[in-house]
Amino acid sequence: MKTLAEQVIEKASEKSVMIATVESCTGGLIIGALTNVAGSSAVVDRGFITYSNESKQDMVNVSIKSLEKFGAVSEAVAGEMAFGGLTHSKADLSISVTGIAGPGGGTDEKPVGMVCFGRAELGQPPHTETMIFEDNGRESIRKATIEHALKLLLEALS
Rank of each mutant, 00 (worst) to 15 (best):
A12R: 05
S13D: 07
E14K: 13
E14C: 02
S16V: 03
E23Q: 07
S24E: 07
T26C: 08
L29S: 15
I31W: 09
L34P: 08
V37S: 10
A38V: 11
A42Q: 15
V44W: 07
R46M: 06
G47N: 10
F48P: 02
F48H: 10
T50Y: 00
Y51K: 01
E54H: 04
K56F: 02
D58F: 00
N61G: 03
N61F: 06
S63C: 02
S63H: 02
I64T: 04
S66I: 03
E68P: 01
K69P: 01
G71E: 12
G71F: 15
G71N: 12
V73H: 05
S74V: 13
A76V: 11
G79I: 11
G79P: 08
M81C: 02
G85Q: 09
H88L: 00
S89Y: 03
L93T: 05
T98M: 07
G102M: 06
G102W: 05
G106A: 02
P111H: 04
P111S: 08
C116K: 06
A120F: 07
L122C: 11
P125A: 14
H127P: 00
E129D: 08
E129H: 10
T130Y: 03
T130M: 13
M131L: 06
M131D: 04
E134D: 10
N136A: 09
R138G: 02
E139W: 03
R142V: 13
K143L: 09
A144P: 00
E147W: 00
E147P: 01
H148K: 15
H148D: 02
A149Y: 07
L153W: 02
E155K: 13
A156K: 07
S158N: 15
